[in-house]
Structure formats: structure tokens, C-alpha cells
Design a binder for these strands. Structure first.
Lengths: 201, 201
DNA sequence: GTCTATATTGTGATAGAC
DNA sequence: GTCTATCACAATATAGAC
């Protein structure tokens, strides 16, 4: 499996799989080693401790979760265009990495101090987007709304369906995985439509 | 601490605190014992294993997460009334139990088989609510929308702010916990308003 | 760099006195 | 019922040969 990749790459791929699915505490070094097709000792050779290996994976996951699409909100595109592109791009990222949202959210809850470090390095300031929303309200283009409520609603509707995947499949899709996946794809259009319907005058 | 409670009650309170904050894998029996003001052996006296104790806690948490408010959706109240009451009651539950959403979602992801058992016992059928939405659409009272998208949006906007608490506090509230809490309270009105604005004609 | 074998530690669980 | 002391095992981590 993946014979053309070097050992370190195989470790990172295996570790990402196991850590994102089971979390720091739930993951076993043995399982990561098996997944990578090597033995435990080699894991410690490349990354001295489990925590060091975890940090490498977590940072990568966090980068997927937070900054990429946030840059979009800082551009000078029209508001409705931003909302459309944001939902589409964000949901696409999670279709490719379905375990990332639950993983990052859970690990941040377990260890909130981490966030300050992670965020201070990257310039994620929602102020620009908030300002844009306020200006649209003043211009009378959209209905009055607390910009922070709007942002959290956007994040919630994009992220939640991945965090709640098992319960949604059972409760709403009667175990039909295909129906769930189609539903997720549909959300790339449905979510921005829902948002824009709510705020447009 | 809590000297008027008996040992079993103290164990359950302590276990709820530790399990919901750290999960099954992250929780330590020693920590639960300390929290309850007893020793490890006594935990095993009341609940033979860690898993048994966990199951007791998880079931209670799941009951808070899922059924209570779901009953509301089966009543014959007008649609907009339901949406208002649902958001208010659901968010109130999580204000009282802020760790429940992340806990339940994470543990269900780790062990999805559990869901079928848990749900089969309680009659949580979203069909009634879905039917009501479809009827309102046919009557022309609200805009056309996939009822499942609407339901997931409602759940997402109520639940997500609690799952993402640490990241929201840092990213949106610059570490101001009080602002976050006020924001959550405001959502009891803001969420149903956002939803109804989106679907009403 | 990669392996086998082993050391070390952490933690769930039990034995047995009171 | 509650405690102290201990066991047994699982899991991280290291030593050392190749």
C-alpha cells in the first residue's frame, strides 16, 4: 500500500486517519503503525512522542478548518457572492475531509488554550466581513441583523452536518448513506439560498 | 462538598462532569473519584466497570440531546410557533448543560452503532414535522424548501454554538466569555427570526 | 532507517481489612 | 459501604542489533 511514498509521508497519512477518527486519547500508536505498514518504534524515531505526532496532525487539520476560506471574507466581493462562495468552498473541503470538523472541535474543547497560539499566527480577523454587513444594513440592502449572528449561522450550517453525521443518517435518512451524501452536496446551494432569503429585503 | 447527597448521587454528578468534558477515553476513574470525594474502589463497587458508568451517563445525556424537544415537533401547533418554541427550549437546555452537545456528538461518532438501540426505544419520527412543512408549502404559506434542509438548519443553529464554544470565544468575542453568553441568550430570539425570515413569503 | 525485545508508566480493576 | 494496597494489563517509550 502506497509503496511509492516514503516512510514519513506514510506515517503522516496514517496518523491523520487514526487521530481524526479517534482523537488524541482514542488513537493507539500501534494502530497508526499498522495503518502505515511499519512498527511502533519507527513512529518514535520520526516523532519522539505521541503528542508531538498529534500536534503535527492537529495543526494541519486546524489549517483546513479555519483559515483557507476565511480569507474569502476579507475580499471586496459583493456580500451575496461571498456567501455563495463561502458555503460552496467550505462544504467542499469537508466533503474531502469529513472527519476534520468533529476532530478539531473536540480537541479544541479538550484543550482550549491551544487556540490562542494557533490563531495569533494567522490573520483571521472577521472585522472586515462584519463591517461589510453593517454597511449593507445601513444602505438598506439587507435586513437588520447582528453580523455575529449571521456569521455563526453560516458556520453552523456548513459545519454541523459533518459533526452530526451518524445521528443525521439514522434520524433523518433511515440509515441511507447515499441519501445523506446527496443531501450534503445539495447544501452547497441550499445553505446560501437559505441565508440570502433570510437577509435580503 | 455536597455532604447532604449520598455516595451514588455524588458519583453520578462527578461522572457526568468528567465524562461530558473529557469523553470516555479522556476521562480517568481517579479524576471521577476525586471529583466525588471518594476513592476509585468505590466507583467499581457501585458500577462494576468504567464502561458501565459511562453508559449510565451517556444515556442521560442523549435523552437531553434528542427526545425532549422533538416531541414538540409532533404537536399540531402552527409551524412558526413550533420553530419559535423549539429554538427557545432547545437552547435553554444547552445553556444548562453546555457540554452535552459536544459530548453526545463525539461519542456517537466514535461508536455509531449505539444510535440504533438508543433511538428505537423512543419514538422520534420527524415525519409529522416534515409533512407539516410540505403542507405549508403546498398551501403557499411558505417558500418551497426541502424539509430536511430546514430541519438540519434548525438543529445546526441551535447546537453548533455550544460545540464550537472555545473557537467562537476566541475568534469572534476576543476572549470575552460574557459577550459569548449574552450572544447565546440572544439566539433564542435571533435563530427563529432568521429561520422564519428565510421561509416566509 | 528499520527491526525485535524490553523497560516504564499509567490506569482499570480486584482482594481483603475494617 | 468504605478504605488501602495491590494486581494485571495495556500502551507509550527506549535500547540495541542489524
Amino acid at each position: 500500500m502506497d509503496k511509492d511514498l516514503n516512510t514519513e509521508q506514510r506515517i503522516l497519512i496514517a496518523a491523520k486517519k487514526v487521530f481524526t477518527e479517534k482523537g488524541l486519547e482514542g488513537a493507539r500508536m500501534q494502530e497508526i503503525a499498522d495503518e502505515a505498514g511499519i512498527n511502533k518504534a519507527l513512529l518514535h524515531y520520526y516523532y519522539r512522542t505521541k503528542n508531538k505526532l498529534f500536534e503535527a496532525i492537529f495543526k494541519e487539520a486546524f489549517d483546513k478548518m479555519v483559515p483557507q476560506v476565511m480569507d474569502l471574507l476579507k475580499t471586496d466581493l459583493p456580500l451575496f457572492d461571498k456567501i455563495n462562495m463561502f458555503a460552496e468552498q467550505y462544504i467542499d473541503i469537508f466533503i474531502e475531509n469529513p472527519f476534520i470538523p468533529g476532530f478539531v472541535l473536540h480537541e479544541l474543547s479538550r484543550n482550549p488554550e491551544r487556540i490562542v497560539d494557533l490563531i495569533s499566527n494567522m490573520g483571521i480577523q472577521p472585522e472586515v466581513f462584519i463591517l461589510q454587513i453593517q454597511q449593507e444594513i445601513e444602505k438598506g440592502t439587507i435586513k437588520p441583523i447582528d453580523p455575529r449572528q449571521l456569521i455563526v449561522n453560516m458556520l453552523a450550517m456548513c459545519i454541523f452536518p459533518f459533526v452530526a453525521k451518524p445521528i443525521l443518517i439514522t434520524l433523518i435518512f433511515q440509515g441511507d448513506l447515499g441519501a445523506y451524501l446527496q443531501f450534503i452536496k445539495d447544501r452547497k446551494k441550499a445553505v446560501p439560498e437559505f441565508i440570502i432569503n433570510s437577509i435580503k429585503k
